[in-house]
Structures are given as structure tokens and as C-alpha cells.
Design a protein around this nucleic acid. Structure first.
Length: 908
DNA sequence: GAGTTTGAAACT
DNA sequence: CAGTTTCAAACTC
């Protein structure tokens, strides 16, 4: 894979493919694909690595770029990222996007909440304005959000652009290739001190900017944003309500996040009051906590790494130009790890991890779109950022602190120069961030989103052949970088910096081995890292590059994403008319795990980590990585896909319920207890429009949960292909449960399944009421608490459904955003933890193969408005719409579907 | 926070 | 490819 690395510095090899016409650019594909239903297989334009299926173009790109190349780590150097990511971008993008979207949504929700409830005024920046609706109510907020998405995008693009140009660019931009940062453009090998100084200065400057207010935020983002066509489209869309929604969705391809968010917001809007209530309800917090907990899992190594990689990729892309000078070109490289000059202990501030910015992405690279989805890694990143950014802005504005970002903003030495290239920037610039001072929370959210996105992107990769073109663009050093994509790790502290960005803690590997998350991710270690004797720094670029090459020489795929969609094409063909089909199941861990003792239920297991990601991301849910035949694990209980099985969910449920029960009962029970269900079905289902779809359900009651769980499994697909909506089965499954509460606080009396005849999307919505009520229990925060209770089901259609359900969740979550950071932290989902759940329930739900028409439950929480909206479905439709066509192959536009269970999941 | 466990990465 | 060692994260206390 990752031819990149091999070619590495020389870049040329891959590059050939890379030169992709703008048309190929993801944006283009995305745009072309805007139609919600039709996924486009996307031309995949650029992605590819010519030769390689999925060479990490991104990474390679740098190399490719004549200009930049050098950048080395940053981008090119991490082949894995590039190729995998590139290939995976589609999916990854989705996921990322979804994540981002969810996060953004959450953030938005939070902001909204804050506005309404707290009444805090955001004086700050644009974001605030947008966000704040006159009423300040959720509805408005939601709408605003939607608007914001677009607006933000726009704004970010515009304002940010301007500002960026003005502010940030000047320094950096001027540098051009060096880009990355004005700072140490020459980063290469300069003495650390020099670098440090540079960085410090940059940082300080950034910080000051930030403090100043708008300028700051803008500064970061600006550079890239403006040109993005996508953004424009978005903005335009925004204006148009219905269309806009769709459009947004479509953008989702690139903008997945935004689209989701939008959709979510839209949905939410409808249910203003309800929504608000729900959000306010403590239950929501709990939900959020759960999510967070789940998300924590993501933070796991693998995930992190992936995330990092992702970032790297982006960076790479971005950085390419600047890089030019950098390592490769210079060639010094060869410093063996050992030989190198004194490693830096700990990281100094100077290096800030480059943050992937969509913008950056845009500029430099023309990244191949994700095949089906059209998302790109870049896009993902961008989207994420955008989403996050928006969120951040809002809140941040409130608070005013910006710390981390500010620092980051400082372009790391490493930071990859962002491109200005217009082409790619689909995503709205992360406007928010720059604008307001941020809250930690915001940051965390953003970071989470970013992380997720990154992780997803990282993991999920579709091999694509498209080349990515890196255009050297201006550097950026921009604000974008300021963000940390890092996944928040455990609260514990891991290594998170103040920023919340977490880094490695390597002591012996010098951060030049794959053991090092940073290195594995293709990024330089940052100040936040706790590593010792670190060589993974810009100063040692050569060394880093060499090392990478060495590693790649041994294992070309070493830096490649671990998750790959295998089935996509075949399935896709089957499913999607559009061809954009994506098989959720298809995504698998490249190598498979080798777990012996953890039963694949601990974060030690990469497959499990992936699983968690999906969980967390349920929105996107593309990954569906479960253990597969390729795994050598023993005693695997990975629900998502046991070894040898298709996936518990799908296969077992459908075909072998009994088996499932017996074998997986405990596991299932746990899951049920945890209240989390994942549905691949949607993904699998052709029916599902949404690509993303993986549905998560949180069950209120264990019993219910268990049932639900099973249902879910059943949902997945009937062997026959007809898909039965889980909710269909037992729509009501969830019950109230105050008692158990997985989500403790959140309980949903009823799950509402909403079918949008029009869209064919299905939504399940948990009862909002309970959410509110349950606020008491703290579940999420505590990892272990999850156990039972409320369920959220998101099923869905790609867009909408997700949006909705997700939206609802998100909303709630958002409220609690404060905790968002936590999301990622937890590891093992409660699922793992314990609690048996009745298997029986499962059977209950399952049965049919057909889809059931949607029960019309009332939409929860937002009941009034939302419900209406849901019921009507119109909003959903809009928003949901497009569903990122591209992202998920499996999706079908409407219900049709034939998909086989097989297709859906692959897990063996 | 220290120590243990775990599984990937690296090495043989 | 298999076995062993190294490593850092995950986990436990």
C-alpha cells in the first residue's frame, strides 16, 4: 500500500496519478453527486494511487508534489495514511463526516442550549450571531445551525478567508510552499532552538490573534476556505431551505459532517421545544456521556493512530508544498533514528501537530474523492473541522479561551502548509474555531469530532486508485492547524495536553516506530506529547522520513489504514444503482487482530476499537469493522463481527439466531445492558439510504435492550435480503427504564420509528421524555454505568435518519457537551462490561424480513416539533437526503434494496 | 501513580 | 511463517 512510502521522498511515483484534474477533485465528485439518493460512485477521481489501489495518496502526495514533497512527515511521508486514507476516504470521509457532523451537531446543540438556557450571549464572532437566533431557542438554533452549517461554512469561507488572508496568510501564505508556517518553514533540520523559537513566536502570535478575537479565529481558517467551491455551494444551499438541505447532504460527500449536522439540526429545529427540553434534560447528558464513553473507545490506539494518520494525510496534503523544502527535497534524511541528533525530549511547543484542515486539504491536494461517498479524507477532515469549528465558535465565543487552539494555530513547524487551492475545499473552513475563544469543551468537541473523523477516515479506507494531487499552496500555518484533531483520550490524562490533544508517551522508541501513535499517524510529535528522546519532530525530518521508508520497505502497508472496505464494489454494484454502494461490512481490519485474552472486547483489540468507533460514530457507521476470518483471535466476542461470522448482527441474527444467542448471549447481553446497539443493517441494507447508517440503539431497558439488540441483529437483514427494520421488529422496544439505564439518565419510553415514505428512511427516536426525566443518573460519565436503559436508535437513512436520531442524540449530547471530551475517553463500552441481557428479546424482535412500515411513533423528545417533522419526514428528507451518497456504498436510496446481508457486513 | 496486562510491532 | 522480544497503551490496584 502505500506505495508512497517506498517512493517516499521522491514522490514522483505516485504522483503521476495524483495529478488529478480539478474535476476529479472530491469536490467535484461530490458536487456531481449531490443528488441525495444517487450515490455516485464517484468517480473517484483523484484518489488514487495510480498503481496502488489505495496507496496513501495523501501522504504520498507530498512527495508527489514536486513542490513540496519534502514535508515529509507531514504528509507524504506517511504513506499509510495517504494511501489508505485516500482510498478510504470515501468511507472514512463519511465516517469522519458523520462524526464531525455529530459533534458539530452536538456542539451546536450545546450552543443552542446555552443560548436558550443559559442565555449566555455570545458576543463573539460571527458564529455567535449565526447561532443565536433571535429567539435563541432550540428551534431557531437548529435552524440556525443548519444555516450555520452553511453559513458557517460560508462565513468561514468568507470571513475566514478574508481574515485568513489578511491575517494568517500574510505570514504564512507569503511563504508559500514553506507554508506551513511561517514559522519554521525551513523547519528542516534547523536547530531545535530555532524551530522552537519560530514556533513559539508563531504561536504567540497566533495566540495573540486569538485573544484579539475574531481575528484569531479567522486567522486560522482563512486561508483555505475562500475558494472552496463546495463551500459556496453549501452556502447557497443553506439559503435554500429544502434544497439546501439536500444540497448540504450532498455536500456531505465532502461535507458529510455538515450535512449531517444540518440534517440533524433541521430535524431538531422542528422539534424546538421538545428538543430543547430533551437537550436540557439530564438524560441527554447521560446520553452524551455514553456516547462519549463509547467514543473513548475510539480513542484507542488504533483509532488514535488512525486519526493521526488521517491528520497526517491531510497535513501531508496540505503541507506538501511547504514541504518542498523539507526533508525530502533536502534529502538529508538519512539519519537513522539512532544517529540523529539529540532527540528532543518531550515535545516542545514548537511542534504543533499539524491539524488537518479541510482548507488545507483543499488547497494543496486534490484528493480523490471517496469513491462511493465522495468524501475524502481531506474532506472529512475538513468537514470535521468545519463542524467542530462551528461548534467551537459558539461556545468558545462565550468563554473566550482559546488556549489550545491558539497554540496550535501556531503552525507547527511541521504543519502542513495548507493549500489554497480552491479545488478541494469542500468543507467550510473551521470558522468557528478561529473566531471565538474557545472553551475547552468546545475544543474537546472539536477535537473529538476531529478525532472521530480522523479515526474513521483513517480506518476506513477504500482502496482507490485515484491519485491525489497535491497542490502546493500557500502555507498555512493557518489557524486550522490550531485545532487538534486528537482524539481525546481518556480523561485520565493520558497525555493530553492542556489542549486536550493527546499524544504519545513513548520512552524507548524515540517515536520512530509504529509503536508511537504520532509516528504511526504520520504526524510529528507535539509539545503535548510526553515522549522521551523523540525524533519525530520536524527537526529530524530526515530521520523520520528514513525511518518511515524503512518501515514501509518492510511492510508497505505499515502506515496504511487498518481498515479497508473490501466488498464495496461488488456489493455496491448490487446495491446501489448509483453504484455508490458501500458495504458497511466491507470495512475490515486489514490484518485482523490477534487477541488472545481480551476476547476482542477490550481496547487492546484493534477490531474492537474500530467497533467502538463505529459505535460512537454510529452516524456514519461505515466501518463496521468486526473481527473477521483474517483475525487470529481466540474467543472472539466482537459483536460487530466475529471471526468467522458475518457479524453477529447480521449473520447471526439473520441466519442463526440461536447461534447468536448461545454464543453471543453474554456478549449481547452486555451490549444490551450497555444499551448500545449497532446496526449495520442500514449500511448493509440497500434500503438504507444513508450510507452511514449504522445504527446504534441505546436501549432503555436491558430487556428491551436485549431485544433491541437482537432486533438489531435481525434488522440487519434478513438473510433474504429483505431488510427489516429493527424498529420494525420491535419498535417499541425500548421501554422506559428508569431502572436500568444504560443511559441512565436517558431513557426512552418509546422508541419511535419513523419512516419516511418519501425518503424511505427510517428513524427511530427514543422517547425524549424519559431523557429528561432521567437526568439523574450519571451514566456515561462513568464508563461502567451504562448498562441499561434508554435506547436510542438511529437507524437510518443515511441522512436524515441519522440526522434525526443522531440529531436527537446529539442534541442531547450537545447539551452536555462539556463532557464531550469524555466521549472518546471511555473504552470499553459498557457492553463489554457486563450485564446480561435477555436474549429472548431478541427473537421477539426479529422476525421479518421485510421492512416494516414505519411505526409512527411519536418522535420523542422533541416531540412536538420534531415529531411533526419526523412524521412528516419532510425535513428529514431534506436534510437527510443526500446522504452522502458517496460515502456509503450500501446505501440505497430509498428502500429498495436488495442487499444481502452478505453485502452488508462483512465481518465474517 | 505504579504496576500489571495486553497485543501490536519488531525482531530473530 | 512461527516464535520471541520489545514496546506502549490499556488496564488494575
Amino acid at each position: 500500500m502505500e506505495m508512497d512510502s517506498p517512493n517516499t521522498s521522491k514522490s514522483t511515483t505516485n504522483n503521476a496519478a495524483e495529478s488529478v484534474p480539478a474535476q476529479d477533485s472530491p469536490v467535484f465528485s461530490f458536487i456531481s453527486n449531490l443528488s441525495p439518493i444517487q450515490p455516485v460512485k464517484a468517480p473517484q477521481v483523484t484518489q488514487g494511487f495510480p498503481g496502488l489501489n489505495s496507496p496513501p495518496l495523501v501522504f504520498t502526495s507530498p512527495r508527489l508534489n514536486p513542490h513540496s514533497q519534502a514535508t515529509f512527515l507531514k504528509r507524504a511521508k506517511f504513506p499509510g495514511l495517504s494511501a489508505a486514507k485516500l482510498s478510504g476516504q470515501d468511507e472514512g470521509c463519511k465516517n469522519d463526516a458523520a462524526v464531525d457532523a455529530s459533534e458539530t451537531l452536538v456542539a451546536q446543540m450545546k450552543t443552542l442550549r446555552t443560548n436558550c438556557i443559559e442565555k449566555t450571549s455570545y458576543s463573539n464572532s460571527t458564529m455567535d450571531d449565526q447561532i443565536e437566533s433571535p429567539t435563541g431557542c432550540p428551534d431557531q438554533f437548529l435552524t440556525d445551525i443548519v444555516n450555520m452549517d452553511s453559513a458557517d461554512l460560508n462565513i468561514s469561507a468568507d470571513s475566514t478567508i478574508n481574515k485568513s488572508e489578511q491575517i494568517s496568510q500574510p505570514p504564512d501564505a507569503v511563504t508559500g510552499s514553506q507554508g506551513i508556517s511561517s514559522t519554521p518553514p525551513p523547519i528542516t533540520r534547523q536547530s531545535e532552538e530555532v524551530l522552537k523559537e519560530d514556533t513559539s513566536t508563531d504561536v504567540s502570535a497566533v495566540e495573540t490573534d486569538i485573544k484579539q478575537g475574531d481575528s484569531v479565529s479567522e486567522d486560522r481558517s482563512p486561508a483555505i476556505e475562500p475558494e472552496l467551491p463546495i463551500d459556496h455551494a453549501l452556502t447557497n444551499y443553506d439559503q435554500d431551505d429544502p434544497m439546501a438541505e439536500n444540497v448540504e447532504v450532498g455536500q456531505a460527500g465532502l461535507l458529510d459532517q455538515s450535512s449531517y449536522l444540518i440534517s440533524g439540526s433541521m430535524q431538531i429545529d422542528e422539534g424546538d421545544e421538545n428538543f430543547v427540553e430533551a437537550t436540557e434534560a439530564a438524560s441527554t447528558k447521560q446520553v452524551v456521556k455514553k456516547v462519549r464513553n463509547d467514543s473513548k473507545a475510539f480513542q484507542h490506539r488504533g483509532i488514535r493512530r488512525r486519526c493521526l494518520q488521517f491528520e497526517d494525510a491531510q497535513r501531508d496534503v496540505v503541507s506538501n508544498q511547504p514541504v518542498q523544502n523539507t526533508s525530502d527535497s533536502e534529502g538529508p534524511t538519512s539519519q537513522p533514528l539512532e544517529t540523529q541528533p539529540t532527540p528532543i525530549n518531550g515535545h516542545q511547543a514548537d511542534t504543533v501537530q499539524p491539524v488537518l484542515h479541510p482548507r488545507n486539504m483543499n488547497s494543496a491536494l486534490k484528493i480523490p474523492k471517496p469513491s462511493g461517498i465522495g468524501l475524502h479524507l481531506n474532506s472529512i477532515v475538513n468537514s470535521v473541522q468545519a463542524g467542530s469549528g462551528a461548534i467551537i465558535n459558539v461556545k468558545s465565543a462565550q468563554r473566550g479561551t482559546f488556549s489550545i487552539r491558539g497554540k496550535r494555530s501556531v503552525p507547527m513547524i511541521n504543519s502542513y502548509p495548507s493549500d489554497n487551492s480552491n479545488s478541494s475545499s469542500i468543507f467550510p473552513p473551521p470558522v468557528t474555531i478561529s473566531a471565538s475563544p474557545d472553551d475547552d469543551r468546545h475544543e474537546s468537541h472539536a477535537s473529538l469530532a476531529a478525532n472521530f473523523s480522523t479515526s474513521l477516515s483513517t480506518y476506513i479506507v477504500k482502496p482507490s486508485n485515484k491519485s491525489v494531487i497535491l497542490n502546493p499552496v500557500e502555507d498555512q500555518s493557518t489557524p486550522e492547524e490550531s485545532f487538534c484533531l486528537q482524539l481525546p483520550r481518556k480523561k485520565s490524562s493520558d497525555s493530553s495536553d492542556g489542549d486536550g490533544c493527546k499524544r504519545c508517551n513513548c520512552k524507548k522508541s524515540k517515536c520512530l516506530k509504529l509503536y508511537c501513535d504520532c509516528f504511526a499517524a504520520g504526524i510529528y510529535c507535539a509539545d503535548t506529547c510526553s515522549c522521551q528522546g523523540c525524533y519525530n519532530r520536524p527537526e529530524y525530518e530526515d530521520t523520520v522520513l528514513e525511518t518511515r521508508q524503512q518501515i514501509e520497505s518492510r511492510n508497505p502497508l505499515a502506515f496504511a489504514p487498518k481498515i479497508v472496505q473490501k466488498n464495496v464494489e461488488p456489493l455496491a454494484s448490487s446495491f446501489g444503482e448509483d453504484g455508490t454502494h458501500f458495504t458497511p461490512a466491507s470495512a475490515r481490519h486489514k490484518r485482523g487482530c490477534n487477541c488472545k485474552k481480551s476476547m476482542c472486547l477490550k481496547k487492546y483489540c484493534e477490531c474492537y476499537q474500530l467497533f467502538l468507533l463505529e459505535l460512537f460514530l454510529f452516524l456514519l457507521g461505515k466501518a463496521n469493522v468486526g473481527c473477521s476470518d483474517g483475525c487470529r483471535c481466540e474467543g472472539c466476542k466482537n459483536v460487530y463481527g466475529k471471526k468467522g461470522e458475518y457479524g453477529i448482527m447480521t449473520k447471526d441474527v439473520l441466519n442463526e439466531e440461536d447461534t447468536i444467542e448461545q454464543t453471543d448471549v453474554s456478549f449481547i447481553e452486555k451490549m444490551a445492558e450497555s444499551g448500545i446497539e449497532l446496526y449495520n443493517t442500514e449500511l448493509c441494507n440497500p434500503h438504507n439510504l444513508t450510507p452511514l447508517t449504522p445504527a446504534l440503539q441505546f436501549l432503555n431497558n436491558r430487556d428491551d435492550a436485549s431485544k433491541a439488540w437482537f432486533h438489531s441483529g435481525k434488522f440487519f437483514q434478513s438473510p433474504e435480503s429483505e431488510y427489516i427494520a429493527p424498529y420494525m421488529m420491535s419498535p417499541h422496544s425500548p421501554r422506559n427504564s428508569d431502572d436500568n439505564a444504560i443511559m441512565d439518565q436517558v431513557s426512552f419510553d418509546q422508541e419511535i420509528v419513523y419512516d419516511n415514505a418519501e425518503t424511505g428512511l427510517h428513524y427511530q427516536i427514543p422517547n425524549p421524555d424519559k431523557w429528561a426525566n432521567n437526568s439523574k443518573t450519571p451514566s456515561f460519565s462513568e464508563d461502567k454505568h451504562y448498562s441499561s436503559a434508554g435506547s436510542l436508535c438511529w437507524r437510518g437513512s443515511p441522512n436524515t435518519p441519522m440526522a434525526q436520531s443522531s440529531g436527537s442524540k446529539l442534541v442531547q449530547v450537545s447539551e452536555f457537551d462539556s463532557d464531550l471530551s469524555n466521549l472518546m475517553q471511555d473504552d470499553t463500552p459498557e457492553i463489554l462490561k457486563d450485564n446480561p441481557t435477555p436474549l429472548n428479546a431478541v427473537k421477539v424482535s426479529s422476525p421479518n424480513k421485510k421492512r416494516v412500515s414505519p411505526p409512527h411513533g411519536r418522535p420523542y423528545g422533541f416531540t412536538s416539533s420534531l415529531s411533526a417533522g419526523l412524521r412528516t419526514g419532510r425535513k428529514f428528507i431534506l436534510k437527510a437526503v443526500p446522504s452522502f451518497p458517496p460515502l456509503t456504498p450500501c446505501i440505497d436510496s430509498k428502500n429498495v434494496q436488495t442487499s444481502d446481508s452478505q453485502n452488508c457486513t462483512g465481518k465474517k
